[in-house]
């Protein structure tokens, strides 16, 4: 479970660009819950993720997970597939790298039968044929394949919380749908708590147990699965304005 309590942060302190980003923001994500966050640019969505991962420290407020535990328990996938994977390593090596998230990396060889079977099984879930290309360089994969691989890599170890930061932003509509479907499938089968940022209003309505609108440094509105059925993407987008 992830609890954020009264988080406030001001960026670029003591400069001309000084700007309060988050003000008294609180959020609770229960185990297995899928929360979607929307909001205009500059509302503080990425800042929020950075506070959760621990790369930014809030000026005040509490994050329930201790910082040391976060590395092991939080996985993140971002919008750029080049950031989510290592181009010049093979699929196998990428997965081996992700397998050791938060664990000690020692002198054990990366290649062994147990890992190979595990990676094979995980890749087969994608239905993309990647399990047959396990020794290919990631540089030879398409953007969608790479984003799928980063999703698999993020969930390879027992994570408690999965952060998805506009993961379909760089993909064509068809691949975007495919990847979102895949993400939803993984979150449901693995029973992960998930926090997703998106600018795609369709996705915001279709996925998630709860959708939150982040505006002016705090959550302006909250929609449950039931209330979301009455809203169209256009009305949701209109809420950014007022």
């Amino acid at each position: 479970m992830l609890i954020l309590q009264n988080i406030s942060i001001t960026l670029n302190k003591n400069t001309k660009l000084e700007r309060p980003v988050l003000q008294n923001l609180s959020l609770t994500v229960t185990p297995g819950e899928f929360v979607v966050i929307i909001g205009p640019n500059g509302a503080g969505k990425s800042t929020l993720l950075n506070i959760i991962t621990g790369s930014l420290k809030p000026d005040s407020g509490l994050v329930s997970l201790a910082k040391a535990k976060r590395k092991k328990n939080i996985a993140i996938v971002t919008q750029d597939p080049r950031v989510g994977t290592m181009e010049q390593l093979t699929i196998y090596e990428n997965m081996a790298l992700a397998l050791k998230r938060g664990a000690k990396r020692g002198f054990k060889p990366i290649y062994n039968k147990k890992r190979k079977e595990l990676f094979h099984r995980k890749l087969a879930l994608l239905n993309m044929g990647l399990e047959k290309r396990i020794t290919d360089l990631v540089a030879n994969l398409s953007g969608g394949e790479r984003q799928a691989l980063s999703l698999i890599m993020a969930c390879l170890t027992k994570t408690k919380i999965l952060l998805l930061d506009e993961i379909t932003a760089a993909l064509d509509p068809k691949t975007a749908t495919q990847i979102m479907h895949l993400a939803d499938h993984i979150i449901r089968t693995e029973k992960l708590a998930c926090l997703m940022i998106t600018h795609n209003m369709n996705h915001a309505l279709k996925y998630g147990d709860r959708t939150l609108l982040l505006k002016n440094g705090h959550f302006a509105e909250s929609f449950t699965r039931a209330t979301k059925t009455n809203i169209t993407p256009a009305t949701l987008a209109a809420k950014f304005e007022d």
Partner: peptide, 23 residues
Amino acid sequence: NTDLGLALRSLGQNQQLAKHVGI
């Protein structure tokens, strides 16, 4: 070709991801 060596190799490629996977 060990976990440690792989972590070394990842440094030269993508430090952001390296950080994400806890290196």
